[in-house]
């Protein structure tokens, strides 16, 4: 259980680094070139690590189903929706809404046990937990920050 918690925190930390770095690439080469590069590198890294850890077992795809091959298209849906959402609402609101939706659907998937997940029975406690996290996201994102000083605005960035 602790390893699950730590791995989730590791994933989140890497996601935030990736977002910031990809953003810098995005400014210079455009969003689809960035997406292509990011997914291409992700494939290369996954394939390499798979070979390192599993060797030839990397090619043993016994229980392959057809839909597995198309699942990667969800990523294209993510990029399209987020780029459109951010263009229309700005990053703060678009990302807040997206995070709340992520949590809502996570609770739905756990409760329904869809796609072969171990079903986690829906309880009132879980709903409260998710709502508290959602409130935290809203306070974090929408709550104002202290204004930057004139000096910082002029010199940094």
């Amino acid at each position: 259980m602790i390893s699950g918690l730590l791995l989730a925190l590791l994933a989140g930390s890497l996601v935030s680094l990736q977002n910031i770095f990809n953003n810098k690439v995005n400014i210079h080469v455009g969003s689809w070139t960035t997406t292509t590069l990011v997914l291409g590198l992700g494939f290369a890294a996954s394939f390499t690590l798979g070979l390192v850890f599993e060797g030839s077992a990397m090619f043993a795809l016994h229980h392959l189903k057809l839909w597995f091959c198309f699942s990667g298209l969800i990523g294209v849906g993510v990029v399209t929706c987020m780029v459109q959402g951010i263009n229309r609402l700005g990053p703060t609101f678009a990302v807040s809404i997206s995070m709340c939706a992520q949590l809502g659907f996570a609770l739905l998937f756990d409760s329904m046990g869809w796609l072969g997940l171990e079903k986690v029975d829906f309880t009132f406690k879980q709903l409260i937990g998710v709502l508290v996290v959602v409130c935290g996201i809203i306070v974090f994102k929408v709550g104002g920050r202290e204004k930057r000083t004139a000096n910082e605005q002029g010199l940094v960035g």
Partner: peptide, 15 residues
Amino acid sequence: HIGVTLTVALVIIAQ
């Protein structure tokens, strides 16, 4: 290991 809801919540917090 810990389910979808908890994973998503922790990923968001770390992020």
